[in-house]
Write a protein that binds this DNA or RNA. Structure first.
Lengths: 215, 215
DNA sequence: GTGGTTATTGAACGATAGTACAAATAGAAC
DNA sequence: GTTCTATTTGTACTATCGTTCAATAACCAC
């Protein structure tokens, strides 16, 4: 443990109780996400989450007084993670559109359950105005990627909508789509028809994203 | 055993009991849709639907043994209605893309609750393979509209995805978007950048769909 | 150590859920 | 009329829900 020299301030760093509380809180949120992935948002209750996390039911109500608080926290968590992935794609500096395409296609494989959870929680957000900013952050980040390639606000809208719509299509289709095809659709929405979009095909930033040249 | 002595009729036409049953069934489905619109898919129970329909709770279980049956029926109903509206747009023969844009924008106004219900139920469908064909019918019909204007499968995918994504954006945004802007985005996804899409601006098929000429 | 704060637990309450089932009603077939 | 089938209702059972609450354990400040 910590041998308390003079006081450290942030409270959550010094107070072991608060630190443990933060950890517990994170554990419960993770368990909530697992429940959403397995049974859907409708399966989230204080008790089911508690069972999933291996804690008494009263502990989940201690950290999240209402069921809504729990869902808000879960949506925030999954949204944060997606935004983080998008930021990585941007910062890696290579083919951002191709990277986005790979992220979208991942919703057919390993990322399916997570993508499903994000969609369920976002749909839930449509009824809770307070949740809308959180649910919109994925769209905002995709819009930033679009603005790297065009200044046309119409093109930005188009790519954001297409990205979201293709995610939905993949979740509903079940069959794995082609990354190059997804990328081609994104490029189509971005570009005005010229070579505008297909710029940085250069080095292997997102290797594997084989680009289709034919429009 | 059944004595199939005389008539071979549809039964529902001759037998007043079955006819009444069909009517009751439809009433319950409508009530279910109202519950979904008001409280979301999570608010659907045998009892809440029964209260909404003004019938005893046991009657909803008589017609829909499981809760899933009820949701399937509701999704089928709302999906049917949307496909019907799209068919009307196509059959009216005018500016189909503009008509689609108007339908999408309607999700910000009067059609909001219905669009929300459709989205909630469709999201539900992602977990039930048997439901996927039903949830995909809107997309299929939009694809048909796209194919009226292009033979490029990539363009078809793009417009379907964009249409779906813009619906989601509108439900999450809350602010009413511009019909002409939505139409412009759809046209962008369809066209290769040329005048290809903006063909049938002719007579007032869907009056009010003011087209923006500038791409 | 004492005192105060936070985390954690178990038990209980009332409300509501899905489900089952027997009885009652209405219409069809005879 | 009788008989059969389909619809409709009331009721009861069991399970789980959100929520509350008092009591305990862990921890920090002194």
């Amino acid at each position: 443990m910590d041998q308390g020299a003079s006081g450290r301030r942030p409270a959550t760093a010094t107070d072991g109780r608060l630190a443990r509380g933060e950890r517990r809180r994170a554990e419960i949120i993770d368990a909530t996400l697992r429940v959403v992935e397995r049974d859907g948002a409708a399966g989230v209750t204080h008790r089911t989450v508690a069972r999933e996390a291996g804690v008494p039911a009263s502990l989940t109500t201690y950290y999240f007084a209402t069921l809504d608080d729990l869902l808000v926290a879960a949506l925030t968590e999954v949204s944060d993670e997606y935004v983080r992935q998008l930021d990585e794609i941007v910062e890696s500096g290579g083919d951002e559109v191709g990277g986005l395409a790979e992220l979208i296609v991942a919703a057919a494989g390993n990322g399916r359950r997570r993508a499903l959870a994000e969609r369920e929680l976002s749909t839930l957000a449509a009824r809770r105005p307070a949740l809308r900013p959180v649910a919109r952050r994925w769209r905002d980040t995709v819009a930033e990627i679009a603005r790297l390639h065009t200044s046309d606000p119409l093109a930005v809208d188009a790519m954001v909508a297409a990205a979201d719509g293709m995610c939905a299509a993949i979740l509903l289709a079940g069959e794995r789509p082609d990354v190059s095809r997804v990328r081609a659709v994104l490029a189509r929405t971005l570009g005005t028809g010229e070579a505008d979009v297909s710029l940085p095909i250069t080095s292997g930033s997102h290797r594997g994203s084989r680009l289709e040249r034919g429009q």
